[in-house]
Computed example of a mutant assay.
Amino acid sequence: MAQQGSNNAPQKSKVYTHDIDEQAHNLTQWQQKYDQVSDGSFFGCIEGVNYSDIHAFKEYTERSLRQQCSIAPNSIWLGIPSQSQQSKINGLDVASNQFMCRTSNSDFELITPEQFDIYGLVIDWHSIEYMAQLQGVTIKNLSSAQSARLSVSDSSLQTAKQIINSMVVSKGFGLKPESQQDMLSMLALHLLQADNPQQNIAPSYKHRKAVVDKVKEYVAANPQKTITITELCELTFVSRRTLQYSFESILGINPLRFLRLTRLNNVRRELKLVGQSKPISVIAANWGFWHAGQFTKDYTQLFGENPSQTIANNLKESGLDF
């Protein structure tokens, strides 16, 4: 992790990692859990700058991820993909003229593609409210599902990305830290103005998301239980076809792949636990992988390393490889 800056300058940082859990933890004051979705070894980077009331950052992730996110308390988050890429927030596709927005009162889930860059602002809610009052700007209701995606002009999004990039990566246009923060606050107000149009949501969305959410809750409550598609259909009172369509539209993967990816990611987390001494085969079997050879093949394909390498790499990173 590299840091720079004088006593008066905002603190900048740049963090690289090859571990998805470290990537999730590297955004300060967030509570996050990343599951890897696409195959191959992971690489991620977060560049950030902290002001008194704003954290601006740029995040890169090499692999497609399912991200479960909760931002810092009493804050608002704005997320702007750097390019027009297929991403989702709470199962809703993010268009090229949209940015994402959530408050600390609303946990959310992101589905991000491979080689994904996103610019982010996390702003203290009281400071943005105060700035809005001073400027006579009305901030829209941000608690609704529609507010997860907000539409603005292409030029506004391009300007926003340039401003955040200058603050995070460059020298903030040569401005003093207080002026940099004011510029970011005004940028956020511009994006959040109440006259910006919101995206309509299809009537079937609520039902599809409810189906997926019920399955996710059931899987989380029964982490090591072998679960069948028939069982999930009975749980959600839908047909196999509706179950599959719900998962593909909300998460971008079918329910069988969701179950397998969830278990593989959980195996990896258990292999990395400090002091963990169970044999790999026992851990795999506990998560429903009975065929050792097929498990190793699937694990290696997803993470770009076999289970033994995960353990060895984790020990090395922890300084325990002696």
Rank of each mutant, 00 (worst) to 15 (best):
L121P: 06
E59Q: 13
S87Y: 04
L259A: 10
D154H: 14
A292F: 00
Q135R: 14
V37R: 11
G79L: 08
E231D: 09
G275A: 11
I229T: 12
I280R: 01
T226K: 09
S106P: 00
A284T: 07
Q32K: 09
K278E: 15
G5I: 10
H291N: 15
S318C: 04
P203V: 13
S185G: 13
C45T: 07
F116E: 08
T17S: 15
G304L: 05
T296N: 14
H207K: 12
P279I: 03
H25F: 12
V169K: 11
W125V: 12
L157C: 09
Q294A: 06
W290R: 11
S204H: 08
T61C: 04
F289K: 05
S38C: 08
K278F: 02
N105Q: 15
S106Q: 14
N196F: 05
I76W: 04
L192H: 03
G136N: 14
S38Q: 13
S246A: 15
I111K: 05
K316W: 04
Q158T: 12
F247S: 05
R241K: 11
W125R: 11
W290G: 01
P177V: 01
S13M: 08
L92E: 08
P113W: 05
L142R: 09
D19Q: 01
G319R: 02
C45N: 14
L302E: 03
L27W: 12
S179T: 13
A292D: 15
R269M: 07
E234F: 12
Q4G: 13
G174I: 13
N97I: 01
K161G: 08
N222K: 15
N313L: 05
R241S: 11
K12L: 06
S64A: 15
S106G: 00
Q158H: 14
D117W: 10
Q309G: 02
E305Q: 15
G288I: 04
A285E: 15
I123G: 04
K216D: 05
V215C: 02
L264G: 05
L273R: 15
K225C: 07
A188E: 03
P81N: 06
V122H: 00
L175K: 13
T112I: 02
R240A: 12
Q31N: 14
D19E: 12
I163G: 07
M186D: 08
P255V: 07
Q180Y: 12
S308R: 11
I163F: 07
D124G: 07
K58C: 03
A95G: 05
Q32H: 07
I227W: 00
G293V: 05
S64E: 14
V267R: 00
Y218H: 15
S96C: 10
P73E: 09
P113G: 11
S179D: 15
H190D: 06
G319Y: 10
T61I: 03
E317T: 03
M100I: 10
D39M: 06
R66F: 07
P255W: 02
P73T: 08
Q276W: 04
V169Y: 06
M1C: 05
D195T: 11
T28W: 06
